[in-house]
Amino acid sequence: MAVFDPVKVAFFVEVLVSGLLSGILYALVALGFVLIFKASGVFNFAQGAMVLVAGLALVRTLNWLEAHLPFWLALLLALSFAGALMTGIAWAVERFVLRKLVNQTALALFMATIGITFVLEGLGQQIFGAQVYKLDIGLPRDNIFALESLFDGGILLNTLDLWSALLAAAIVGALAFFFQWTRTGRALRAVADDHSAAQSVGIPLTRVWFIVWVVAGLVAIAAAAVWGSKVGVQFSLVYVALKALPVIIVGGLTSVPGAILGGLLIGAGEKLAEVYLGPSLGGGIEHWFAYVVALVVLLVRPQGLFGDRIIERI
């Protein structure tokens, strides 16, 4: 009979909780993909590059303003600048790319976002620099040890991770409300279902696309703020987008709650796999294990756990 080992249980809980917290951060990036796909049917490959550009704009402006202004004012202005830049990008994408591709195939739109990725990555580094920039937006970074009375040494939690998760949860809640309960949100969903039908009932397609790219840009700023606080703002932020891909496969490309659940499943799954399966498989498995989970879901439920089932009659 197995003996209850509090040390092992505490470690398991620690790994599980850290995975769930990481998962929420993955979900934050995944949301950017979901938003644009939900509203325009475009799989936006450029989401990772948008996170990078948003982060670079935020950190470079903040670092410069901090020297001249009080921190809170500098942060506010830096966030505003990043927001303005992402709005400008949204306008440019809609005006010069998407508008030209109305009613083109999904593949053409997808390829266009690959082009946007490389333009954003290159221009972002050209304008703001390619170094590592330390970002401090005032989030606490202390460690806390929970359940110390239950487990020797307690369960380790980092407050930066906790605050990041809270921020992500708040954004998710706001977006869910926006899509479900606002007129613009419903218009976005209508456009996603059928461009032509939405246009025929008077929903302005170009305006909707602009709005959704702005919202995705704002989500990119939040993702960049959180990930930048953890690892510094640098090019590697684009790789965070790779973490979001299995999340949206699992959760479904069209579901905001799906992105959250997918994030939690992938985050917890990859961390537990790395710790408990990794040593027997040579380690370093979490990166691809997430895709194993995604593939399994894809085989069983191609639309993801929460995605809309699309049936096309021929």
Binding site: F11, S18, G19, V231, S236, G283, G284, E286
Partner: peptide, 21 residues
């Protein structure tokens, strides 16, 4: 004990929890 980190290394939570253990 050898613990690998997948490229590029932006996510190392599980590695450091193992080290803590």
């Amino acid at each position: 004990t050898m613990i690998p980190v997948a490229n590029p290394g932006v996510e190392q939570k599980s590695q450091w929890l193992q080290i803590r253990q």
